[in-house]
Design a protein around this nucleic acid. Structure first.
Lengths: 221, 221
DNA sequence: ACCCTTAAACTAGCGGTGTAAGTTTTGTCG
DNA sequence: CGACAAAACTTACACCGCTAGTTTAAGGGT
């Protein structure tokens, strides 16, 4: 079959279909031929629109990241903005859990990830945090969010009580974790985020608080 | 070549060599044939000792996890024990960064991971934390450690200043991140861990502190 | 000492993967 | 109207995880 009257593929259509396949069947099942079949096309045709498979995955990861809301840094105080961002970030990742293992391996050169990092860093520096500290805070929260979306704590546990009773005395109840996976993961995230922000607020009060944030931003901007 | 006088493979030798290959060449380069070649053997021979490739990877992940030290929970107060554990956990993962993407996808049924979870959970409950809270704390710290080892924040950035100057105004200096990758990642980890522990200590004082931890452990054990 | 079972390597091969190369037809533009 | 680029195609390569069947050595039983 030669060139069709109307192109059957576009970058956007490929990315959307790739996202759907990954969501439905997981990363390992996602192959160029599988994706092409879903698009009514043969595998190599994709290479008219993307240079490599990784480029497709990058595009998927980028659209997932683009859904993260960083607008809080423009309108709210730094702590509230961080909290809003972290939750939005988590929601964006858990909406497409199967792509997270790929996405989590570094911000890369993806525009949406860079724009997000830029907004966070800028917001923190504007609030008076020293640049090095702002970098660390953004990184620490990214670690936490990515880790929570990636390694669902409860997912690994099995529903067979016998397995734990014998060798892991304190995990006697662990088989129940599987039932409550989502609430465990969200509870752990909420607790950890609150603790992180609490600790950062204390650090802020100790090292930055004395200065007027606005002044501080003006003098360093 | 038939059965040799002396077996050339053992599970331990396979795991050690697999670790070396992954450390040296990365997860994508790790294939059964590549591993077998390193062992002076043909690919399928591995299947006399392991049922699948994933079983080999699980064994590698387990030995990495086994290096984590949780002894603090037996001898120190819960906060110090958590700090020691988190750093030990991080050191174990960053010693073999290439296996982390595999390892981070849940505790699974790996014995070392379960033993670690058991020690942490038990230590926290003994210190007076309610069981649900203990689960959340262990999970939150795992998120943070795994995320930090997985998605090295600095790694993704490029050394070309031009790339950032145009579109990401606040990241003007981002190209410098690549130079200081290790110190950025460690600084972010140290900051985040301190903040987390600070927040947890406040929570402890508010909800558990009033009770004598020893009493509390006795009454719930 | 012999046989039988099992272990541990082998070879051959299946179906799948990412992707390179070259082909064919269509749409578009000078 | 002819040239060229675009977008599909087919073919093919090297590699992948893994299965099946083969060969020989090691070890235990009589």
């Amino acid at each position: 079959m030669p060139r069709p009257r109307q192109p059957r593929l576009t970058r956007q259509l490929i990315v959307e279909t790739a996202t759907a396949v990954i969501d439905a069947e997981g990363l390992p099942a996602f192959s160029t031929r599988r994706l092409a079949a879903e698009l009514g096309v043969r595998g190599p045709s994709l290479y008219n629109h993307f240079a490599t498979k990784d480029e497709i995955l990058d595009a998927v990861a980028d659209t997932v990241t683009a859904a993260v809301d960083t607008s809080g840094f423009a309108s709210r105080d730094w702590a509230a903005a961080l909290r809003d961002w972290a939750w939005s970030y988590r929601r964006a990742l858990t909406a497409h859990p199967n792509i997270v293992p790929y996405l989590a391996q570094g911000p890369g050169r993806r525009p949406a990830a860079l724009a997000m990092a830029d907004a966070v860093y800028g917001g923190l520096v504007r609030a008076g945090w020293p640049p090095a500290r702002a970098t660390h805070i953004g990184a620490a929260l990214r670690y936490f969010v990515a880790g929570s979306a990636l390694g669902s704590f409860a997912r690994g546990f099995v529903e067979d009580p016998e397995l734990y009773a014998a060798h892991y005395p304190h995990l006697r109840q662990a088989h129940r974790l599987a039932e409550h996976q989502q609430s465990v993961d969200e509870g752990a995230f909420a607790l950890g985020l609150d603790a992180l922000l609490h600790g950062l607020a204390a650090e802020y009060a100790r090292t930055v608080g004395p200065l007027d944030p606005v002044e501080s931003a003006r003098s360093s901007g």
